[in-house]
C-alpha cells in the first residue's frame, strides 16, 4: 500500500514545477501552476518506473484532483 503523502511528494518531484508547490489529495490539477503536457508525461513515467504501473494519457484525463491520480495506482 503506497502512502498518499509519499505519492504526492513523488508526484511533485516528477512534475518539476519551476516554483515550489504545496499540494494535498484534494488539490485540483488545473490549479497547479504548470499542469502541462510535460508534467503529464512525467507522471506517466513516474507510474511506470516507480510503481510498475502502465497508465495512459486517457487515464490522466479522467483525474480532477491529485488524489484521483493517486487512485490510478489501484490496489
Amino acid at each position: 500500500m503506497v502512502a498518499v503523502d509519499r505519492f504526492i511528494e513523488n508526484f511533485l518531484d516528477a512534475c518539476d514545477f519551476e516554483e515550489p508547490v504545496e499540494a494535498t489529495a484534494d488539490t485540483e490539477l488545473q490549479s497547479l501552476p504548470q499542469w502541462d503536457s510535460l508534467a503529464k508525461l512525467a507522471v506517466i513515467v513516474l507510474f511506470d518506473t516507480e510503481y510498475g504501473k502502465a497508465i495512459t494519457g486517457e487515464d490522466l484525463k479522467t483525474a480532477v484532483t491529485v488524489g484521483d491520480v493517486f487512485r490510478l495506482l489501484g490496489d
Binding site: 503529464k40 508525461l41 506517466i44 502502465a54 495512459t56 494519457g57 486517457e58 490522466l60
Partner: peptide, 12 residues
C-alpha cells in the same frame, strides 16, 4: 504528435 501515446508505446 500525441506525446503520452508515443511515450507509452516506446517505454512499454
Amino acid at each position: 504528435l500525441d506525446g503520452p501515446a508515443v511515450l507509452s508505446f516506446s517505454t512499454q
